[in-house]
Design a protein around this nucleic acid. Structure first.
Length: 967
RNA sequence: GGGCGAUUAGCGUAGUGGUAGCGCAGCUCCUUUACACGGAGUAGGUCGGAGGUUCGAAUCCUUCAUCGCCCACCA
């Protein structure tokens, strides 16, 4: 390879290698290769919104997935990381609506449904690839040959099939119920899409007269006076002595003002739900506009007056004064009206929680509406299917037992269980156009005269016959072909209102659909909640309901990486769908990331402008840098405070890695294969032992999904241990002329670097691949074991005992080399005290505490920048010399005169005080009989050693002090 | 109202009973040929408060405080 440039330039290598990987099919999974010796590893990507752009949350989430996938490849697994995008109903529809409005000044209604959907597809084609290309820039090793979209034809068929199955099981039903209505999007929302926000408002008190007792007034508190026209009762608690006797009587509702008194009479009902502590203890009941009131209305059979339009303006029933007004404007007018009527008693500031549409950011309107609902399936199985995460820090988590999965961090299991224990039926219909259209065609006929269906006589007779089997309650299900194509629809026939019969036909067949349209059946106009397609993602993307090789090999998936914010929307629902349709969990492990915030802890948002564009960061620092920086600053289970500094650090780290390889390269050509065990210096053994330890620590971090810990281990090993110490010691050899020793050190370097590159690869895919080839390490490996790409190089193993014996890697070398480094650090501090510039050679004298091999002397000389460096066991230091004592000996920095005796004395005295206080601490412990008797022997010995060390230091300083006072 | 999490140096974070660590920022010195996207050294913490258990507590227990998140139909 040509000589490496002085600094790493990511721009020149990233695209090159990404193209290489894709062209070589490195990311493509082959189900046929899965075997007992080559286990499968799979992840499905949380599909980003198809028209979305990459943000820091994606970077965090997908970097983790990529690390897992790349690590699994190096572990010799057959890896499928299945990518794709989500059609994101509301978000995309609004985006396109806005664009159409801006460019053509048209609404979606102006265009019509069919034309609008065409526009969405055009939009999707134009913008849909953006986020995918961004993921590629980040280095994601997804199997792009299997990219999926939640609106792909086979995916649509899959969603439809699921709908029909659940419908037939009676789990999906249509009903007129209170739903969360978003007046902006003009659609129903699920409970999960509603976000409670505290709102500053006003609590109004107004009075109503009891009709049967003129002159008796009740006072009622409300935050929503504009809904008074919709009130159909007032409720009190039957146990409330103040009001119980009024139950059954009536009050006069003040609005709409123009109605006659008798038209405004509403009953007083008794209901336990009324809290008599709150407000006045009298509750206005508006069954059509409040969830709780709806329930009260059901219990007391109250009429429901819907006084609003879908866009939350008031309708005719709200009365002449409010009609046509927007709801908050109507509130003001209603208050004015009450005031005019003399009914308003007080208005005081009040803060309460109001449900907001998460997406549109406006208060939702509880609204009575006909929608499709799902009773969640497989709830019982989904409960308690989460096993605890590995509790022990040092033991890798074992494979979960069958039917169990693990959450990381474990605490999310509680959140999941709690949600599952309290779920209500899921409102799955949305009044949108972009999405999976509900596959239900319906037609209503008078009586049960099936000839009115427009079908032939035989079919009509068939219907009548089937219907006759059970026309009583929920109706009857049977299959029927409307298209004479042999394909069938699932029919559901039941008695609807007013002596009519309703026929619903559910089908996935295009021919059936056409026939149904021809027969005057109408398809339900609504589409399904986007999550109703996402919850099938793990198996729908693998070809279900066909039993594909992918499903055989890769389902259940191994890991899921998700943000905790979609634990209910997505994760929990996927678990239920997995059980219901696959009979098994969709994944074995779920890793929940934190939320990415800015460095002040604020959520990233467009408004605040605190959300950096990851692509800018990649352009500026490189993809590896943003990956490493993000991982390094993302602590396990906590939010991530993003700071560009972290990316900068990632870039610096890559540059360090680059230059460490460059240094190796500059020392001489050939890759050195064989390490000669007999020629290893203590430093060589030290770095090999450190490498061994780093691999072990790294494996633990991986088992715990602790990626910030993993990067910290890599950082420490490579920068602090390899670069700062080991490489520096080799310079003592390289300046010498012992060729065989030099070659051996190069062999150690090659060994360490080739291992290090592999350890780094999941985190830094690009630079490691570049260096893997550039340094020639690829050539040393078989093709599919790293020869072609570092992607498939085996993950390094920590050393077994044979290897340790062969290289004589005894832990005593750690102690020995550490002791030498300690002495060097202290010696460098002496230079600082003496104000000797670090580039200036200066004389040091070492009075060693034991015999030292020549390598130690050479290394110390070099790293202290000492010249001369004298080793003299009998050294008699002159008075007042700068000195330090360490385990390996006493080090002196003798300078010609110029010692500030006063300053030195003061410094030593301070030092002595500190040492003294440490000695007292240890002595006190050792003097305590409880301590000596109860403590484990190792701890006791360690304390005694510590005391000895401190005492030695004290004696040394004392000697120096004595010398100074003599001088 | 319930639940969960956090509180350790200026900032960010590690640390599950035995001498409080790391990174960034700071300060000092160094362009000594792998790297100034660097090297060397250094300062900075009574581990949120108060009790308790223990020979010994950042760590275990109790309690309080502050911050954050999630869940919840008090009008």
């Amino acid at each position: 390879m040509s000589e490496l440039s002085k600094a790493y330039e990511p721009q020149s290598v990233e695209d090159k290698w990404y193209d290489f990987w894709v062209k070589q099919g490195c990311f493509t999974a082959d189900p046929a290769r899965v075997s007992s010796s080559r286990p499968a590893y799979s992840i499905v990507i949380p599909p980003p919104n198809v028209t979305g752009v990459l943000h820091m949350g994606h970077v965090l989430n997908n970097t983790i997935q990529d690390i897992l996938a790349r690590k699994a490849r190096m572990d010799g697994k057959e890896v499928l990381w299945l990518p794709g995008t989500d059609h994101a109903g509301i978000a995309t529809e609004r985006q396109v609506e806005k664009a159409v409005g801006k460019e053509e000044h048209k609404s979606k209604h102006d265009l019509g449904r069919e034309e609008f959907i065409k526009r969405v597809w055009t939009w999707k084609e134009k913008h849909g690839g953006i986020i995918i290309s961004q993921l590629k820039k980040l280095g994601c090793s997804c199997d792009w040959t299997r990219e999926r979209f939640t609106m792909d034809p086979d995916y649509v068929a899959c969603v439809t099939k699921v709908f029909i199955e659940l419908y037939k099981k009676g789990l999906i039903y249509r009903g007129k119920r209170m739903v969360n209505w978003c007046p902006v999007s003009q659609t129903a929302l699920s409970d999960e899409e509603v976000e409670m926000r505290p709102q500053k408002g006003i609590l109004y008190h107004f009075k109503v007269e009891v009709a049967e007792m003129p002159g008796t007034w009740l006072s009622i508190a409300t935050t929503r006076p504009e809904t008074i026209p919709g009130d159909t009762a007032v409720a009190v608690n039957p146990r409330d002595a103040r009001y119980a006797q009024l139950i059954g009587k009536h009050v006069v509702r003040p609005l709409p003002a123009e109605l006659a008194r008798e038209q405004k009479l509403i009953p007083i009902v008794g209901d336990e739900a009324v809290d008599f502590e709150f407000g006045t203890g009298v509750l206005k009941v508006t069954p059509a506009h409040d969830m709780a009131d709806f329930a009260i209305g059901e219990r007391h059979n109250l009429p429901r007056i819907d006084i609003m339009n879908p866009d939350a303006t008031m309708n005719d029933l709200a009365g002449a004064d409010l009609k046509g007004l927007e709801r908050f404007r109507a509130r003001k007018v209603a208050v004015e009206k009450l005031e005019e009527l003399g009914a308003l008693l007080e208005a005081k500031p009040y803060e309460n929680n109001v449900g907001f549409s998460q997406r549109a950011g406006v208060p939702i309107e509880p609204r009575l509406s006909e929608q499709w609902f799902l009773k969640y399936p497989s709830v019982a199985k989904s409960k308690a299917c989460v096993a605890g995460s590995s509790g022990s820090a040092s033991v890798p988590s074992p494979a979960p037992s069958a039917g169990k999965m693990r959450f990381h961090p474990e605490r999310w299991a509680k959140v999941y269980d709690h949600w599952l224990a309290n779920i209500q039926d899921w409102c799955i219909s949305r009044q949108l156009w972009w999405g999976h259209r509900i596959p239900v065609w319906s037609k209503r006929i008078p009586g049960n005269d099936f000839t009115k269906l427009g079908i032939n006589e035989a079919d009509a007779a068939h219907f009548a016959n089937e219907f006759g089997k059970n026309s009583s309650e929920g109706g009857v299900h049977f299959a029927h072909s409307f298209s004479a194509s042999g394909e069938t629809s699932d029919c559901h026939v039941f008695v609807a209102k007013e002596g009519t019969t309703e026929i619903r036909a559910l089908t996935t067949s295009l021919k059936e659909k056409a026939s149904l349209d021809g027969l005057g059946f109408t398809q339900d106009p609504d589409v399904l909640d986007t999550w109703f397609s996402s919850w099938l993602w793990p198996f729908a993307t693998m070809g279900w309901p066909v039993k594909t090789p992918e499903l055989n090999a890769f389902y259940p998936t191994s890991d899921l990486v998700s943000g905790p914010d979609i634990i209910f929307f997505w994760v929990a629902r996927m678990i239920m769908a997995g059980y219901e349709f696959m009979g098994d969990l969709p994944f074995r492990n779920v890793y929940f990331t934190g939320i990415v915030r800015d460095k002040q802890g604020r959520k990233m948002s467009k408004q605040l402008g605190n959300s950096p564009d990851p692509l800018d960061l990649i352009a500026k620092y490189g993809a590896d840098a943003i990956r490493f920086g993000t991982m390094r600053s993302a602590p396990l289970g906590q939010d991530v405070l993003f700071d560009e500094k972290d990316v900068e650090l990632g870039r610096n780290f890559c540059n360090k890695l680059w230059n460490a390889c460059r240094f190796r390269q500059l020392q001489g050509g050939e890759t050195q294969g064989e390490i000669n065990a007999s020629k290893l210096r203590s430093d060589d053994k030290w770095i090999l032992l450190k490498l061994h330890q780093a691999i072990k620590d790294l494996n633990v971090a991986f088992a715990e999904y602790n990626f910030s810990e993993a990067t910290a281990i890599l950082y420490r090993f490579f920068w602090n241990e390899y670069c700062d110490w080991y490489v520096e010691t080799t310079k003592a050899l390289f300046s010498g002329d012992d060729a065989s020793k030099k070659a051996n050190a190069l062999a150690v370097m090659d060994f360490v670097l080739s291992h290090t590159l592999r350890l780094f690869h999941p985190f830094l895919p690009f630079i490691t691949e570049e260096l893997w080839h550039g340094m020639g390490y690829a050539e040393d490996m078989p093709g599919e074991q790293g020869g072609r790409s570092i992607l498939f190089a085996p993950w390094p193993k920590s050393f077994d005992s044979d290897t340790r014996d062969h290289y004589a890697l005894d832990d005593c070398y750690l102690d020995h080399v550490n002791a030498r480094f300690e002495l060097i650090t202290q010696g460098r501090d002496l230079r600082r005290q003496a104000r000797v510039a670090s580039n200036k050679k200066v004389r040091f004298v070492l009075k060693p505490s034991r015999d030292l091999p020549p390598n130690d002397i050479e290394v110390m000389k070099l790293l202290l920048n000492a010249d001369p460096f004298e080793v003299n066991a009998d050294y008699e230091p002159p008075k007042g010399v700068l000195s330090t004592k360490a385990e390996m000996g006493e080090l002196y920095l003798p300078l010609e005169g110029l010692i500030d005796a006063v300053a030195e004395t003061a410094r030593h005295k301070k030092e002595l005080e500190e040492i003294q206080s440490e000695i007292i601490k240890v002595e006190q412990k050792l003097a305590n009989p409880n301590f000596v008797n109860k403590v484990p022997p190792a701890v006791l010995a360690e304390h005694r050693q510590r005391l000895e060390d401190w005492q030695g230091k004290r004696a040394h300083i004392q000697k120096l002090l004595d010398g100074l006072s003599d001088a």
